[in-house]
């Protein structure tokens, strides 16, 4: 199908270009925007492979939530571009090492999968064969075979969330807060005092 080939090369080129631009952009906000472009075109690649559920999840979770927070933080930080670029040479060896290790790992994983077939070893997660959409396939797998791992992953996230809240929660004393319940419970009887005043005398609090 020529259309799919065209779409693949276009999306792949955009992904690679955006990935490089994330690193080389001068302005950190531009970096984040390129990162979003990279996520988005990666989602497009997922769709081409028939993994439409993963593609949508990538967009919803990474682009719709995680990257928004990135952008949020980067915009609020007052980043000095000059000092940022000075550190480039210093961190280059370490960063290069990490990148090299990651690349080697990815190539190894990809080649081994290519050799043995994606589903070898386990009992047939099965490519969606028309009878089952891939949402259903993923759902069945996650909630039957891998249900405990899945729940454990959820617990890890919950712990992380609670940890973040505990670390940042600060009860300041002496701050007036709105109490909706108290506001709503307030009636004319308790909140208002009627005073009859004889004219010319004023009110004595």
């Amino acid at each position: 199908m020529p259309l799919q080939a065209i779409a693949f090369y276009a999306l792949a080129a955009v992904t690679v270009f955006a990935g490089l631009a994330v690193v080389f952009a001068r302005n950190p906000v531009h970096s984040v925007l390129f990162l979003i472009t990279a996520f988005f075109s990666a989602a497009g690649l997922f769709v081409l492979m028939g993994a439409e559920f993963l593609a949508m999840m990538l967009v919803v979770v990474y682009v719709g939530a995680v990257a928004v927070l990135f952008l949020f933080v980067v915009m609020m930080l007052d980043v000095d571009f000059a000092t940022l670029r000075q550190g480039f040479a210093r961190y280059l060896p370490l960063g290069g090492l990490v990148a090299a290790v990651l690349t080697v790992e990815m190539v190894l994983a990809a080649t081994s999968v290519a050799h043995r077939g994606a589903a070898s070893g386990s009992t047939a997660p099965a490519a969606p064969n028309g009878a089952m959409t891939n949402v259903e396939a993923i759902g069945r797998l996650l909630y039957t075979q891998y249900v405990y791992v899945f729940q454990a992953a959820g617990l890890v996230l919950l712990v992380a969330m609670i940890g973040a809240i505990v670390l940042t929660l600060k009860h300041r004393s002496g701050v007036k807060r709105q109490s909706v319940a108290a506001q709503m419970a307030r009636t004319a009887k308790g909140g208002m005092k009627l005073v009859s005043i004889t004219s010319g005398e004023g009110v004595d609090a």
Partner: peptide, 19 residues
């Protein structure tokens, strides 16, 4: 097949125009 998710994804992107 994932129409609802697509809509959800696209509407979650809408925030970028504004930011």
């Amino acid at each position: 097949n994932v129409g609802v998710l697509y809509l959800f994804a696209i509407s979650s992107l809408g925030v970028y125009g504004i930011i």
